[in-house]
């Protein structure tokens, strides 16, 4: 059960800006030496504010961008896309789901093609097989076969996110990077998508890296939590540890800033306002 799916050792990512004809080249350290291990079937949440490097880290884990230094191991195998080509086999292991369901689907591609594309490019399955698999996956994410021939603009945000999830699952990956998958969605839809993710995790024994800024969602879904601040990990532990006993001052600030919607806090706030 304690099989490690994903491991990062001191991952660093630098960006170089400027450095044109005039002006000196500047280095921006987006991710400063992040290490972690993630076991199969678990969810690691990466929390932080915009610009803290959490999305950059997500892109490294998904093999979109290379790391500047450090080691990334998927299923125990080290991988560095700056040096080696990404093989189809590697690609099948990791998939990503983006925040904006309106930008992540090609507006000119029918849903059937969206789902069939990964199979077409990475397997030798026939058109009929691809079609069957796509139909099955649509049912699995709570849509129906009748949606196969439709275009993305005919779907709502939540439905599109389901399609994006379906596409990510077509190659049956073991690891899914979820980059703010529910923050563009309405509360009710958010609950449905979170439930779907939980169902799928149980069914396929998936491992999630869940990138989010929303602590209430993280608290609900995560097994382990990693808090990032300006490219550094300031807090890393199990959900219970981090939420019960935050160590770093930034984590505490973050908790304090999260709106509280329980009745006691509202009562306290109103009393305070009346007194003022």
């Amino acid at each position: 059960m304690s099989e490690v799916v994903l491991e990062g050792r001191n991952i660093v990512r630098d960006y170089y800006v400027g450095g044109g004809l005039f002006g000196k080249q500047k280095t921006v350290h987006a991710v400063k030496g992040v290490s972690f291990t993630l076991e199969k079937g678990k969810t690691l949440a990466i929390v932080g504010e915009s610009g803290c490097g959490k999305s950059t880290l997500g892109r490294i884990l998904t093999l979109i961008d290379p790391q500047t230094s450090g080691e990334l191991l998927i299923d125990g195998k080290p991988i560095n896309i700056a040096k080696d080509r990404v093989t189809a086999e590697m690609r099948r292991k990791v998939q990503i789901i983006f925040q904006n369901p309106y930008g992540s689907l090609n507006p000119r591609q029918k849903i059937g093609e969206v789902l069939g594309e990964p199979l077409l490019l990475n397997t030798n399955k026939t058109a009929a097989e691809r079609r069957d698999l796509a139909m099955q996956m649509l049912v699995k994410v709570g849509l129906g076969p009748e949606h196969y021939n439709r275009y993305p603009h005919m779907f709502s945000g939540g439905q599109r996110q389901r399609i994006a999830i379906a596409r990510a699952l077509m190659l049956s990956p073991s690891l899914l990077v979820l980059d703010e998958p529910v923050s563009a969605l309405d509360l009710s839809v958010q609950a449905q998508v979170l439930n779907l993710l939980a169902d799928l995790q149980d069914e396929f024994n998936l491992t999630y890296v869940f990138i989010s800024h929303d602590l209430s969602v993280v608290r609900y879904i995560a097994d382990e939590v990693m808090v990032m601040y300006y490219g550094e990990v300031v807090e890393y532990g199990t959900r219970e540890e981090v939420f019960a006993n935050p160590q770093h001052s930034y984590t505490k600030t973050l908790f304090a800033a999260t709106p509280k919607s329980d009745v006691e806090s509202i009562r306290a706030r109103l009393a305070k306002k009346k007194a003022a």
């Binding site: 990503i96 983006f98 994006a164």
Partner: peptide, 26 residues
């Protein structure tokens, strides 16, 4: 740099497919 292009790339689409099948129609 839209996300659907990145998604297509992750699905394993090559340069030609990305250029003429994914990006150009849009």
């Amino acid at each position: 740099n839209r996300e659907y292009v990145i998604a297509s790339k992750l699905a394993g689409a090559g340069h030609l497919r990305l250029m003429f099948k994914t990006i150009l129609p849009n």
